[in-house]
């Protein structure tokens, strides 16, 4: 279990805490989120997430897209389009479906933009998530041509998770996090926690 201090210490890249929303709830009471958040007025919406700006050193690894094409991960990220990225696995029952629902709605809401966004979902259970399984998963969430899914070797998936400081020792320890970036060379915006599609879009629109 990460405390905020440990988290900051372990984060080797430059991290600017841009906004801390309910930090104490998120970091110190996360295991008890269900029961232990602050007492509230009925209906008060308080989706918790942490927004940070970060630069990540990207690993030079090969990934396999859901159409079974083997590709350089960096090239996929740097194809010129803005990127919104997350980590998922197909057998995950709670966090990943939620993240994928957010992506699905983001996809729909950004569909009319002239500047196309590249949505990328990276499997953190790559041996189980074969291209076939990822294709079925993509279909379930209505993924279109701008939303790609990637698998690959365990080593490649680990390297990517570690590069984005998203590796927590095992797939069962993963957290809900979305990354976005305006263009190659720009910093990443990291949104960790519960992000609504509207917030994700707002963040995307304000990318610089």
């Amino acid at each position: 279990m990460y405390s905020l201090q440990q988290y900051l210490k372990s984060t080797t890249q430059k991290v600017v805490i841009a906004a801390l929303i309910s930090v104490s709830t998120f970091f110190f009471a996360t295991p008890l989120l269900a029961a232990e958040s602050a007492e509230v007025e009925e209906g008060s919406p308080a989706p918790d997430f942490i927004r940070t700006i970060a630069d990540y050193k990207l690993p030079d690894v090969e990934v396999t897209r859901k159409d079974d094409k083997k590709l350089k991960f960096i090239k996929e990220l740097d194809d010129g389009r803005p990127v919104i990225m997350n980590f998922i696995f197909a057998s995950c029952s709670a966090i990943c479906p939620m993240l994928s629902h957010v992506f699905s709605q983001v996809q729909t809401k950004l569909a009319k933009d002239s500047q196309k966004v590249h949505l990328m979902s990276i499997s953190i259970d790559p041996e189980s998530d074969t291209p076939t399984i990822l294709s079925e998963y993509a279909k379930k969430f209505g993924a279109g041509s701008d939303w790609d899914f990637y698998t690959g070797t365990t080593e490649a998936s680990l390297a990517i998770q570690k590069a984005f400081n998203a590796f927590r020792g095992d797939k069962m320890n993963h957290s809900s996090v979305i990354f976005m970036r305006a263009a190659p060379g720009k910093s990443w915006v990291r949104l960790e926690g519960f992000v609504s599609p509207d917030v994700a879009i707002r963040e995307y629109r304000s990318l610089r």
């Binding site: 029961a35 029952s93 966090i95 993963h174 957290s175």
Partner: peptide, 10 residues
């Protein structure tokens, strides 16, 4: 219940 990441499902 179950546990996923730091989300506890009671």
């Amino acid at each position: 219940g179950s546990l996923e990441g730091n989300i506890v499902v009671t």
